[in-house]
Nucleic acid binder design. Structure first.
Lengths: 162, 162
DNA sequence: CGATATATGTCAGTGTTATTGACATAATAT
DNA sequence: ATATTATGTCAATAACACTGACATATATCG
C-alpha cells in the first residue's frame, strides 16, 4: 500500500470533490432548463423528453429496453409513453420475432419535436466544448463515465458509442 | 470569421455532443442515487439534501441567499426548510444588522447528517477523479462550468472557490 | 413622520414525475 | 400443459415544484 503524499493528490481534497459535486449540480440544473422551457408550452414534461430522446437514439427499442435504460418503473413509463403514442409522436410496431414486443419508433412529428428539444442542448454543449477545447472535453467524458455505476458503464458505453 | 475545418472539430460533431448529453444524464442519475437511498429511510427527500448541503457550505446564509442559489420558489423552500428547522437539523438566527433576516446554520445533528450524505458522493467522485487523473478532472470542471448559464458563472465560481 | 421597499412566512390550489402493489393478457419457452 | 416473459392497467400515494394572494416585521428614503 502506497502512502499518499498530500501534495501529489491535491485534486482529491474535499475542496476539489465538493467543486465537482457543485458543478455537476449547477450544470445539470441549467442544462435541463432549455428543454424544460419548450416543454412548458406543450402538455409534456421532462419524462416525455427522455423517452423521445432515447427512442430517437435507439429506433426499434422495446418497452423493457427503455425501462432498463431509464431505470424507471413500468407504470411510470406506461403513462408517458401512452401519451406520446396517442399524440402521434411515437409509433408502436409489433415485433416480428416476438410478437409480444412493441418496437418503438419516432414518427416524423416525434423526430421534429425531438430535434427542436435537442437543438437547445446541442448549442449549449457545443459552446461549452468550444470554449474548453478537445482535451478538456476528453477529460469531461472520462470523469463522467467513471461517475456512472461501475456495473452500468458497459451499457452506457454501448449507448454513447452508437 | 475563420472557416471551420471538419477534421479539426471532430469533437463538435453531433455524435460527440450527444455523448456529452448522455453521459451527463447517466452520471447525474447515479450520482443522486447514493444520497437518495439514505434519504429514503428518513422523512426527507432530495430537496432537503440540497438545503442541508448549501447551508453547510454557506453558514449564516439567508433565506433569499438560498433561494437565488437553488433557484426555487419561496414556497417550495419554506416547506423544506421548515421541516429541517422543526426536526432540529437547521438553526435560524435573527440577523444582527437586519433583524428581518434569518441566518441559517446547521446544528450538530444537521452537520452529522450532511456528512453522512456527502460521504457517499465523496467516495464516488473521488474514485472517478482517481481513475481519470488530474488533467481529466480539470477538463471536467472547465466543461461543466461552461455549461452553466453565462450570467450565473460568476456566482457559481464564488460558490465553488469558497 | 409617512410611504415604500425588503425579508420572510403562509394559505390554497395545481401539476409532474415518480413510487408500490395487484392483477390481466398475450405470446413464447420448456 | 405449465411456467415465464413482455406488456399494459388500475388504484393509491408521495416528493417536489409551481402560481397567486396575502400577512408581518423591519428597514430605508424623502
Amino acid at each position: 500500500m502506497q502512502r499518499k503524499l498530500p501534495h501529489s493528490n491535491l485534486y482529491l481534497r474535499e475542496e476539489e470533490l465538493r467543486r465537482g459535486i457543485e458543478l455537476l449540480y449547477f450544470a445539470y440544473r441549467d442544462f435541463t432548463r432549455d428543454p424544460d422551457n419548450i416543454l412548458a408550452d406543450s402538455s409534456f414534461g421532462r419524462a416525455h423528453h427522455r423517452v423521445l430522446y432515447f427512442v430517437g437514439r435507439n429506433p426499434g427499442t422495446t418497452v423493457s429496453g427503455l425501462l432498463s435504460l431509464l431505470r424507471i418503473t413500468k407504470q411510470s413509463l406506461s403513462r408517458v409513453l401512452g401519451q406520446l403514442v396517442e399524440d402521434g409522436y411515437v409509433d408502436q410496431v409489433s415485433g416480428v420475432e416476438d410478437r409480444r414486443q412493441r418496437l418503438l419508433y419516432l414518427t416524423d412529428k416525434g423526430k421534429a419535436f425531438e430535434k427542436e428539444l435537442f437543438e437547445t442542448q446541442r448549442q449549449r454543449v457545443a459552446e461549452a466544448y468550444k470554449k474548453a477545447g478537445p482535451e478538456a472535453v476528453a477529460g469531461f467524458w472520462e470523469v463522467l463515465l467513471n461517475i456512472v455505476n461501475e456495473e452500468e458503464r458497459e451499457a452506457v458505453l454501448r449507448q454513447i458509442e452508437k
